[in-house]
């Protein structure tokens, strides 16, 4: 492992306003790289939607995207394409129908998806959002 600068971004999100949260997150990603030389930038859990959405599974499904290859990921945000920065982004991720996952997505410097992790221990509040797979 090489030594590198990691940044943690913490922002006040707008509940269920994915685009606004993405725009804000990208702005802070750029700041982390420009001002601190960050090579890894980590964002909060469910940064695109907020943790408490007030939505059921179908409503949450409407907010998130499927990956082009069908893998479970929201692809709306690939902010690291513009900079040599790795980006770990926990977010709401959808696989199909009422199956919605709380996922962390590791995005490479060219915007490519390196890896996805689906949260294995949802908090009790989260379990009410969708049926278990």
């Amino acid at each position: 492992m090489k030594e590198f600068v990691a940044a943690c971004v913490q922002i006040a999100v707008a509940p269920n306003d994915v685009q606004a949260n993405v725009d804000k997150g990208v702005a802070w990603l750029k700041t982390a790289v420009k001002e601190y030389g960050a090579e890894l930038v980590v964002f909060p859990e469910t940064v695109t939607t907020s943790f408490v959405t007030g939505l059921d599974a179908n409503g949450l499904w409407d907010l998130v995207d499927e990956a082009p290859d069908g893998s479970p990921v929201t692809c709306r945000w690939r902010p690291s394409r513009w900079a040599s920065t790795w980006c770990g982004r926990p977010t709401g991720a959808a696989r199909s129908g009422a199956w919605v996952y709380n996922s962390a997505i590791l995005i490479g410097p060219d915007g490519e998806i390196i890896g996805i992790y689906d949260k294995t221990h949802p908090f009790p509040l989260e379990r009410a959002t969708a049926a278990a797979g």
Binding site: W86, W99, P122
Partner: peptide, 23 residues
Amino acid sequence: MTLGNRADVFETALGSVGMIICY
């Protein structure tokens, strides 16, 4: 929210990365 059922390690130029979330 549906539970995940695996945890993987991903190779990057920074090192080998694993991810977990909150709880």
